[in-house]
């Protein structure tokens, strides 16, 4: 049985709790939110801490912080699912380093640490005979990292095109379907909870660019940062542009593209044929990988969501469970 320390009980953390609570292979022995934490070597009653959090805004007591749990508790794997800080990766980056330094495995859906410090974290893990896995950082439930690393192993990648931001995809598909302006579609996305109060990182292409950096470094062996990604957002797109694209059977989507040989990384609105597999409505994510031998392969599915992202985390946990026979 694997003992888990769960850091972060927001949307993804709740999903992880739901997915793991009836799975006898796993036991959550510690949990922390941004203000408090609790530890129980016999296993935490997840429903009880969610009830407590709802009532008091805290899951436990203030003496247990994420750092203290990472440093002191007896666990096998740290699951880090706090919100992304794209500039510094903190506090998640420090929490993850503490766990790896102790030889503990780490599974995370947090894009900050992986996009900023992939090489360092991988080296630290290796040094301490631990694993760090992060399937949930890119495209939510879609198994793109394992799909490319294992499923397409050995296959040279010529190019990669992705719809990696559900908010932008929702906005552009609503502009296309209903002829809405950008502002109208954004307001609708906010009402439905698809866009955050400050949607800047989504609509200016930064969120998609961070995911592209993670894929480039972790799957394609590149060494790039956010600065290497040329970014253009969707906020200037007019309804007329989408109508004009339609006259030649095209539409507009925010596409993250990567040509490994040319070291060419870009996130920008592009014209795509309306029947392209990367053209779909709603908040899904998809990635088309163009390979030497397999031709073009498209992965598609839920790009975000509580239980959906937890599915990616579960797959990483099962991998570690099997590899280390926990």
């Amino acid at each position: 049985m694997m003992k888990i320390a769960l850091i972060g009980i927001g949307s993804v953390g709740r999903g992880v709790g739901e997915v793991l609570k009836n799975d006898k292979r796993f036991k959550i022995v510690a949990a922390a939110d941004s203000k408090s934490g609790l530890v129980n070597p016999d296993g935490i009653d997840f429903d009880a801490i969610m009830a407590a959090k709802k009532k008091t805004g805290r899951c436990g007591t203030t003496d247990w912080t994420a750092f203290r749990i990472a440093a002191e508790v007896d666990y096998d794997t740290l699951v880090e699912v706090t919100p992304t800080n794209a500039e510094t990766g903190e506090p998640a980056l420090s929490t993850i380093k503490i766990a790896l330094s102790r030889g503990k495995h780490v599974v995370t859906s947090n894009k900050g640490p992986i996009s900023l410090a992939y090489r360092d974290l991988k080296a630290l893990a290796k040094e301490n005979n631990a694993d760090i896995r992060f399937e949930g950082t890119v495209a939510g439930a879609v198994p793109i990292i394992n799909g490319m690393k294992n499923g397409l192993a050995g296959n040279p990648v010529k190019a990669l095109f992705g719809v990696l931001n559900g908010t932008c995809n929702y906005i552009l598909s609503r502009m296309e379907e209903e002829g809405l302006t950008y502002q109208q579609a954004l307001a609708e996305a906010r009402d439905l909870g698809y866009a955050e109060a400050d949607p800047t990182y989504d609509v200016n292409g930064t969120d998609a660019a961070i995911k592209l950096v993670i894929l480039a470094n972790s799957v394609l062996g590149m060494n790039v940062t956010l600065k290497d990604v040329q970014r253009t957002g969707i906020d200037r797109i007019t309804p007329e542009a989408i109508k004009m694209a339609h006259t030649t059977g095209h539409t507009i989507r925010l596409i993250a593209s990567l040509y490994p040989d040319k070291r060419d990384l870009e996130v920008s609105p592009r014209l795509l044929p309306e029947d392209d597999p990367l053209v779909f409505s709603e908040t899904l994510n998809a990635i088309t990988v163009e390979t030497e031998y397999a031709g073009a392969i498209t992965f598609i599915g839920a790009g975000a969501g509580s239980v959906e992202t937890a599915s990616a985390i579960l797959s990483d946990l099962v991998f570690i469970l099997k590899k280390y026979a926990l």
């Binding site: 095109f161 253009t232 596409i255 609105p269 592009r270 014209l271 795509l272 163009e290 073009a296």
Partner: peptide, 11 residues
């Protein structure tokens, strides 16, 4: 001016 172009070089 903002340019939106076609995705090129697809298989």
């Amino acid at each position: 001016l903002m340019i939106i172009d076609e995705i090129g070089g697809r298989l």
